[in-house]
Design a protein around this nucleic acid. Structure first.
Lengths: 124, 124
DNA sequence: CATACTACTATCCAAAAGGATAGCGATATC
DNA sequence: GATATCGCTATCCTTTTGGATAGTAGTATG
């Protein structure tokens, strides 16, 4: 194994930080993940989502859905029924999150185990 | 290609959300990434880090370092010099973040391009 | 004896994120 | 005509996060 030669220019580092932060930001907030998972099963209407995610208030739900829409993870469709119905569904692009989410999930699981284990047997 | 059959039991989904959230949490906050990158080059002392990350206040720096320590990304070493010096350095375990960070960075870069592009040519 | 350096902590404050509660316009049902 | 359903928005409030500023103990230097 050879040591990688990595150039840590200030610019390259800042760019990395920005990219990672952009990614983290797209997934941040209390409800984005639950929302994405809920919509993974099927498209849902506004009130339907609200009932599924028991504790979310309409204001927050509305805001989170708008952000998911801006990031093109979710498409909002309005139907001229009476009363009007609106559905939210995951876009094909939302699949691009799969790799990231899988890595995060794997790492999160392993990390949790490690931290819990290291609290059981503290430093001697 | 066949459609994957994924079981979305409530428990499995909650476990996923928790794992991903744990991972996101470990990287969250304004300074964790810059700190990790700064320490990637070499171990540093407290005041040294503060000078490197120009705008961070000692209170915040202290808090962020403590969190990185709890997550075992950073090791704190105290030297009985005069005056006492304390260094912070990345642990081998911090390398476990590499995959996650690489995925986040790649996705973040592509996502930024996509969103900027789609704002240039809005829906017709 | 004042000042500076080390690594911080303490107190107070501002901004951001999240939430509770109420209400709106349109229509349908009782 | 009161009530309900739909998809929200408006207003106010709390919690969390981040920050500004000052100060601490111990030692050394001018």
């Amino acid at each position: 194994m050879e040591t990688e030669t990595i150039v840590h220019t200030k610019e390259a580092c800042n760019a990395s930080v920005t990219a990672v932060r952009d990614a983290l930001y797209a997934l941040s907030g209390k409800w984005k993940l639950p929302l994405i998972i809920a919509l993974t099963e099927r498209p849902m209407r506004f009130n339907e989502i609200q009932r599924a995610l028991e504790d979310i208030t309409p204001k927050i739900l509305s805001k989170e859905l708008r952000e998911l829409e801006l990031n093109e993870f979710v498409e909002r469709k309005v139907f001229a029924t009476v009363p009007v119905t609106v559905t939210y569904e995951l876009t094909p692009y939302s699949k691009s999150l799969d790799n990231v989410l899988r890595e995060l999930k794997t790492w999160g699981e392993e990390h949790r185990e490690r931290i819990i284990a290291s609290r059981r047997k503290p430093v001697v």
